[in-house]
Amino acid sequence: MSLTDLEADASLPAAEEVAAAGPIQGRSPWQLAWARLRRDKAAMISLAIIVLLIVMALIAPLISKWIGYAPAFGDRKLGITEDGLPVGLNGHHPLGTDRLGRDLLVRAVYGARISLIVGLVSTALATILGVVVGAMAGYFGGVIDTVLARFMDVTLSFPYLLFAIALAAAFGASTPLTVLVITFFSWASIGRIVRGQVISIKQREFVEAARSLGAGNIRIIFIDVIPNLLAPLIVLATMTIPVAIVFESTLSFLGAGIDPRTPSWGNMLSDATETYQVAWWTLVVPAAFLLITTLAFNILGDAVRDALDPRSERLFAAQKAGRKKKK
């Protein structure tokens, strides 16, 4: 912990005498947040899991080669018992196989590719759309706000599952369609939060100060508004990714998402409905991947929020300590 770390907290009186001895180069709020995040063990474990997943997804072909089976290859020799049932965990198939004798580990890492791509791409698209629409509505207000805010309300009130199934039926299930559907149903909630944030940032005195200096709207939006949005956006995005991943799995499970032949966690779960009574691993493996991934993203998101807003962390610590004391 450095001295500037202390000074950064507005709730504590800063001591110039102490600070003067510290480094001249100020540490940015981002650096401080990262330092706080690094101290959070659960967050670091979650981050490690996420990185591991990404690496696994990237080297999925290598894993496939190393295990010796392609994701779509049904191993009729070692992958299926004589009764035609999936085999359990063994040396050839570390996490067992499914009803067609396909290797579950290989399918799961290929599934991670789909899940992560769908999760990240749709979150990115939704965030961009949400920021543009939310920021415009919040910053300009008036008629623009009325129209855009109503549009977001309408989007949010769509029955998304029915809508997605109908689209899949009409155009055929595909990855791009899944991404579009998820984006369409995620951006509005981001947009709404962004709009609220922008309205509150717009009323801060530093925006007024910029305006009194003669700064134009574009400058104010890019220099004063957006940088102050980044913190909530990072949190929001981290929390949206797992939702998108679960959304993708749900759609795939229902046959309205990824092409059923492509390995994805949702498709694997869907397949497992036929076998889980005799082969629990067919259900548990994709479910575990899904659970661990969403949990990691959620824990990380929580931790990022705490790191970016130290006050909430402190409040939380006080509550925890208070509870302990009562016991």
Partner: peptide, 30 residues
């Protein structure tokens, strides 16, 4: 340029995400 303002809230009137040098230098940029 000729008319400037000093605000009440020393916490709210400075953008927390920017370095002091760029805050004070803002008027020169604008």
């Amino acid at each position: 340029r000729d008319v400037q303002m000093i605000f009440q809230d020393p916490y709210g009137s400075l953008n927390p995400r920017r370095r002091v040098g760029s805050i004070i230098g803002d008027p020169f940029d604008i």
